[in-house]
Amino acid sequence: MVDWAGEWETGLWLAAVAGAGATYFWRGLGVAISRHLRPSGPLFEWVACIAYGLLAGLVGRMIVLPLGALQHTAMEARLGSAAVALGVYFLTRRNQFAGIAAGTGAMILWIW
């Protein structure tokens, strides 16, 4: 535990603190701005649409163009597993758990 103060570790912890700050930044800002937002108004619905647009954009990016280790998996494996997840989800009458388990399982088998 002594070498936690080493330079390499310091950089990591600085990144961790910066990452936490960058994450809470949006949350704190959201509370501050929400004071002026009336639930069920058109502005409210537009903001909710942006939330879904951002989430969908992130999901598309994470599946099609992932960072890190997933980059080395085949595109067919990622798209195929996503399709399996969606297929099982709808076949099981929208059972989220079944869809996730099937999609993750398909990915594991695909890259085994």
Binding site: Y52, V59, I63, S81, G103, M107, I108
Partner: peptide, 22 residues
């Protein structure tokens, strides 16, 4: 493959949230 699959679980899960939520 199992640990990679678990990293991939997150986008799969978010995708099904999108299929459920709106």
């Amino acid at each position: 493959p199992v640990s990679l699959g678990l990293v991939f679980l997150n986008p799969i899960y978010f995708m099904l949230v999108l299929a459920t939520g709106p």
